[in-house]
Design a protein around this nucleic acid. Structure first.
Lengths: 176, 176
DNA sequence: GCACCCATGTAACCAGTTACATGATTTG
DNA sequence: CAAATCATGTAACTGGTTACATGGGTGC
């Protein structure tokens, strides 16, 4: 049975303590969303599929009159999560529309192309600030959760430095 | 009129000298595909849409008895490309299923999690080798086309170094 | 009483991949 | 003559987003 990465997000978040679909969405939105988002339109149908497949169990657990369903991983679900986590990774893939813009930036006058580079840098600076906030938030995350946050931070820093470096090189060209 | 990034790939490749849908696919496959792929299933319908929208013109230009349609940017098409290239970039987005795997790697024994890190590195080493080949290929690309290739190379290098660094740190932990 | 949070779900849409179907021309 | 390359397209499917619809609970 082939599961989508999003299915593993659901499984993984249940493993990290999420109980409801709403919980999953909440946790995703301040953790994996930076490299793997999930919307309600995916999460709820996915929970149902996983329940049918026997990887999670759902139990109605309303709070007062409010509809609510709590989920847990089954042994099979936990096994599926572990197997996926240990499986060989995909070939690296980048998907960056801003890089696409840069790729075609020869259609612009150098000054405007340079401006695009600057904007890219600004974007990554904002991104970095966001991740720094997450980092500063108290509470201790599991080691690999933290590792990935560190990755995000260093990725943003790499991009900022890369932009700066080329901004300098290209503005020398412009001056010449 | 909102166009998809893929529409701009088509426009941009025509601008770089592609004439047919087949040409576009060929160029994409050894340039932008590393950060923005495009399949025939997108390219041909997109060319038709763009023609209807007046951004490209198509002319039947068979080679012998072989069906063939040559496209060119119209003035409007070129304008659309330039405007898009100069428009503010999107907020940076990462989409990396391997990072997702790492995020949940706490379910694994440390030794296996470490192995995943190693595999990630290997993936990026292969990726780097591929880009190095592209770089070595003779022919001089427009400056920004080359810039993006350099980005890919440095991105791969950044990832390799990042993995190495954490492999070391975590294997010390394992030993302890 | 109002706003915000908790909570679940569906329907329409959009983007993109894969597989299929077809056929001519060129190169070894 | 076979294999690779040139060339165009469609159909089915998958994955994902957005908007919509609904309604109870909590805190100001």
């Amino acid at each position: 049975m082939e599961l989508s990465p999003t299915a593993y997000v659901v499984l993984g978040m249940l493993n990290l303590g999420a109980r409801t679909g709403y919980d999953i969405k909440g946790i995703v939105d301040h953790s994996t969303r930076f490299f793997w988002a999930a919307s309600y339109g995916q999460i709820y149908p996915e929970l149902n599929r996983l329940e049918k497949a026997g990887l999670v169990t759902g139990k109605h657990a309303p709070t007062g009159g409010r509809k609510r369903k709590e989920y847990d991983l089954t042994a099979a679900g936990r096994k599926a999560l572990i197997e996926w986590a240990a499986a060989p990774p995909q070939m690296p893939e980048l998907r960056d529309s801003n890089l696409l813009k840069l790729f075609f930036a020869d259609v612009l006058p150098l000054e405007q192309a340079l401006h695009q580079l600057l904007m890219r840098r600004l974007g990554h600076e904002q991104f970095l600030a966001l991740l720094r906030e997450l980092e500063a938030r108290p509470g201790d995350d599991p080691p690999f959760v933290d590792l990935v946050l560190q990755y995000g931070i260093e990725y943003a820093e790499f991009n900022i430095e890369w932009c700066k470096r080329w901004e300098q090189r290209l503005s020398k060209k412009e001056a010449a």
